[in-house]
Design a binder for these strands. Structure first.
Ligand SMILES: [Mg+2]
Ligand SMILES: [Mg+2]
Lengths: 604, 604
DNA sequence: GGGTTGTTTATAAACATGCTG
DNA sequence: CACAGCATGTTTATAAACAAC
């Protein structure tokens, strides 16, 4: 029973776009937005104000996907191989419901929720940018830089944040005081935590020991509860993921772990932290970088809260990812927009939020319980014909639903790389046939071959025993037997569980789709974040609910804030995008609150 | 107890150098050896007769390591980035005990053990090359090409080798007949088996289903014994290792798995197969590609044999690997030489053989029991300064024992890349201080960033429990408790086991070091292949025994045959080299036969 | 001799998704 | 035609075996 939740440690999606890992913090401040380059269909491409080699692609709602591809292709050719290699797609407005013009992104250090941030003594937000693309709902997009830098003094031994240091650890632990050992397991993957740790260091590198310490200091679970094997896992992750590289100190002896700069999104705990630990807090419309610290820690300590934070099987990160591939060593970022109706600090906990993903690709429509409102669009890796050789055919539509999922498909050099998208992407149709996103670009690295990476319990196998008969599947799965399922006890019968889990509740802040061009096709990927029933009458949205046709979210405020999210995956060509939509009123959250009862019979 | 041996499935080291994966089989036959390029110290570099972009580096015994580096560097500069990117190091002779001249490598299709090969109806050795570098002992190096190609007819559905097909499966299974389900687990990793499968296909690609089938057909263990979870592992390996890529058939629907050509060493079961399944056979001095098939299968079916094949914890492949990094996208292969005194098909099973590895780097010298005779030299990744930027210092000796092992150390751009080697490498000293091999080149990919890759038993953790007290190590380790160690029951006491295992017996054909420049420094990496005590009075060589000073192998015939081995690791920059030395007479094998008694007290 | 740090392989699992009966 | 289940893929977690300090 000590077993941790089944593969629960998934990185929370990123809240803020990642920035360069350089130490060039000062000059990044207020670079003037360059002259936007305009392309057909109103698409504009302009320099990112702060990120080098990055361009912002503002796409009017009315723009055609092919136009986007064309613009990106043209831009790619304009700039050549040495040009920008990252493109952040922003949803602009074609005048329908937002300001017709796409204002240049982040241009000032508008401080949002400053008080929250200030509450942390040692955390100083490096920079916050508020941008508004589209209507008012598109606001409060900020990111902090090396906010954690104050934390660690230097690189050698001081890095290891003294235990007496309160640090900005969200929830889980207090001031290093004996801190109730009832710490629940944090919802971050090892890979994520390692990044948090390393990025918290001013030198962006850390020894293994210090990584251990940082994690123990910030997640009491590992200090107090976890078996020592967790360190083995840390080491395993360091070795396994090529994102982590080891370098020797100039004076030898010491070896430091760092993150490949090319792939370092500079994730920090502060960045990814969301007040989700407390459902009430989670409902806060403002997904700002609230540095909960001590203020919130009280709430988090409550068993209910902890339960909620630990129990949930967090949504698969890739649900929020948008792996995009631009042949010319370029990567394409889809930058979602987040609503910013930052009011109502607390709700009646009726509903938390929804998340959006890109390119549904035929998500199963289970027995819909409520009116679908949220949608997720899952964008599969795309290949923009910037430098592809000899495109054979130029199918208007994605070839065929040939592959299954995002995978490293060998470059199908014979097909013209096109931005694949479901029909709904362009015509707001249902995603029944939207499963046309394929050709994972991960292996299509431009020019030279890139490589990426990205790894038993003891005896008494739980795996399907050949002789067991019904154990025909080669994918081991835990039997839905009682013990580990206290909460699920009364719920569905054996085989039903698997299916039911697919309708897991959503627990993202808020969702709104009215202001993004991807609005209609957005489909939820059925994230599995389970909100504790005790958190009030919240109900989750089953996948079906979030399915297609949900464009008309009754009360949601169209808010789009760019969020670059990632799975912490060290895959170079895989770009993750997190679409967070906030601004929905409590009452409005009702549309997709169905399957909760499935999971928590007691709620019925 | 059903538990498989602890992480036993390690790929056997390769017996033959890998060749290009191209379908260009015909023209590969007898290319004339080009004019060798001569470098100081008698080092010669010439084109590989069959492998494109590959050169053979013949290194006289007297050559200095720095000379080798210099020659490689010079050659690299000569050829530029587009020149050969693979170098196979061959041990030449400086006239001491072998022919003074380094004859050009493989130049004819001398068939060795033709009868064995012919015995297999559907296996036709594509090519065999016998080379002799140095004295007579350097012989019989041959490799077969797509010998397995006859197996699968076409690409679609015929690939799946009919079950009635005898195929060239070594040992383990007969003609697909009910075959005794007592199949023991093969000693190949999943990654290896997948490569075997895919490379057995003429089209070099295979569907998942066919991979399953191929493996089941060739390793009855998976058909008859393994739990269904093995398929999960196959899929896991396919996804995890970037070496495996998925591509869609042109007609969609089908997705095939193939191997990145750049990293495909075209390993096939035949290539790696050694008659080791039967210790008696294993003693055969000729490590030829004996296609055991039905002839041998009888032997292998014997419980003793099976026991021996399955029980052993195979040596870590990397023990035989020589990850070498040449900055200019070049890879350096150390090609060992194998003795070819192919006589005595069967021995008294007194001793099997030894293996050699490159660059010892401080192998533990355990209480030596016998006179050390075999040595293993373990070469850590090296960086030849072909295109390194701004080498700061040019230490004659490897910088310092800064890092621990082969790892992806961030490019220490400030140090001149040099071939690192233990002192013993050059002066036959002991390896106590040899731990100077570092700077894993895996992350030093030339030019653009390459990426590579390379990830519970169920409940009831056996891992060190925090509360257990003595479980302080974060690396879980199985307690040396009785049950799983039937064969070891009487053996050492608890904690002693760990250490004892390090002295595991060696089970490679034969070893001889007299003809290789690496002779003296060769150190055994204590491969863990455990020969069943029942296999006769064999005794293994503990690591110490194989330690330094073993240059003077009493009776060993200096034999060096190039063997390129690899861990099946899809790491581009990591090259694996297997140094197999054969030619030792049975009587001569006595020098390193010590620790067997440690493991099998009954032998005492 | 034992602990630390790294590297790899094996397994189990959770999930996603397309297919197919 | 809906769908349940299976096949196929992707990732994360753990345990472990080893190697080298
Ligand atoms: Mg790594
Ligand atoms: Mg793969």
């Amino acid at each position: 029973m000590r077993r941790s939740p089944r593969r629960p440690l998934i990185l929370k999606r990123r809240k803020l776009p990642f920035h360069q890992s350089q130490e060039s913090e000062p000059q990044r401040n207020q670079s003037q937005p360059r002259e936007p380059r305009c392309f057909p269909d109103g698409i504009r491409i302009l320099d990112h104000p702060t990120m080098s080699h990055t361009q912002l692609v503002v796409i009017p709602k009315s723009a055609d996907l092919q136009s986007v591809i064309g613009a990106l292709t043209a831009r790619g050719k304009e700039c050549g191989v040495h040009g920008p290699n990252k493109f952040i797609l922003l949803s602009g407005n074609d005048g329908r419901e937002c300001s017709p013009d796409c204002p240049p992104p982040p241009s000032d250090g508008n401080h949002d929720s400053a008080e929250t941030i200030q509450s942390s003594p040692d955390v100083k937000p490096a920079k916050m940018i508020k941008r508004s693309i589209g209507d008012d709902s598109i606001t409060s997009m900020q990111w902090t830089d090396k906010m954690s830098q104050s934390e660690s003094s230097e690189n050698t031994k001081e890095n290891q944040e003294p235990k007496s240091h309160a640090s900005q650890a969200p929830g889980f632990h207090a001031n290093k005081a004996p801190a109730p050992p009832q710490a629940e397991r944090p919802p971050y993957s090892y890979m994520a935590m390692i990044q948090f740790a390393i990025n918290s260091s001013a030198s962006r590198r850390m020894t293994l020991k210090d990584i251990y310490m940082w994690i123990e200091d910030h997640f009491l679970y590992y200090r107090d509860v976890a078996k020592p094997g967790w360190k083995n896992s840390i080491r395993h992750n360091l070795s396994l993921h090529h994102m982590f590289i080891r370098e020797m100190a100039s004076d030898s002896k010491l070896s430091y772990w760092s993150i490949r700069p090319e792939v370092n999104r500079c994730l920090t705990l502060d960045q990814v932290y969301k007040a989700e630990c407390d459902p009430v807090t989670a409902l806060d419309p403002v997904p700002t970088l609230a540095f909960p610290h001590k203020q919130q820690q009280q709430r988090m300590k409550t068993p209910t809260v902890c339960e909620r934070r630990m129990k949930p099987l967090l949504p698969r990160t890739d649900a929020y990812l948008v792996p995009v591939q631009i042949p010319v060593a370029s990567q394409l970022y889809l930058q979602p927009v987040v609503s910013s109706s930052r009011l109502k600090p607390k709700r009646s906990a009726s509903r938390s939020a929804k998340r959006v993903r890109i390119a549904p690709k035929g998500s199963r429509v289970d027995p819909p319980v409520m009116a679908p409102s949220s949608q997720t669009l899952k964008v599969e890796p795309v290949c923009v014909p910037v430098s592809c050789e000899t495109p054979k055919a130029t199918p208007k539509r994605p070839p065929r639903s040939s592959s299954r999922r995002k995978q490293h498909l060998a470059r199908s050099l014979h097909e013209e790389p096109v931005l694949l998208c479901p029909d709904t992407f362009l015509d707001s149709g249902v995603s029944s046939d939207a499963s046309t996103f394929h050709h994972d670009a991960r292996d299509v690295e431009p020019g030279t071959h890139h490589r990426q990476d990205s790894p038993d319990r003891d005896f008494s196998f739980k795996t399907p025993i050949k002789s067991t008969g019904h154990l025909t599947s080669s994918t081991p799965s835990k039997p839905p037997c009682g013990a580990p399922f206290e909460h699920w006890g009364v719920t569905p019968v054996g085989k039903g569980i698997q299916t039911l889990l697919d309708f897991s509740p959503l627990c993202t802040p808020q969702l709104d789709f009215s202001s993004t061009p991807f609005k209609d096709p957005l489909l939820f990927n059925s994230p599995r974040e389970l909100l504790t029933p005790a958190e009030g009458g919240q109900r989750s949205c089953s996948r079906e609910l979030l399915q297609p046709g949900g464009a008309a979210t009754p009360t949601g405020r169209p808010v789009t804030e760019g969020l670059v999210l990632d799975t912490m995956n060290d895959s170079l060509s895989k770009i993750l995008v997190d679409l967070s939509f906030t601004g929905l009123e409590d009452e409005d959250l009702g549309m997709a609150n169905i399957s909760w009862s499935e999971f928590f019979p007691q709620l019925k």
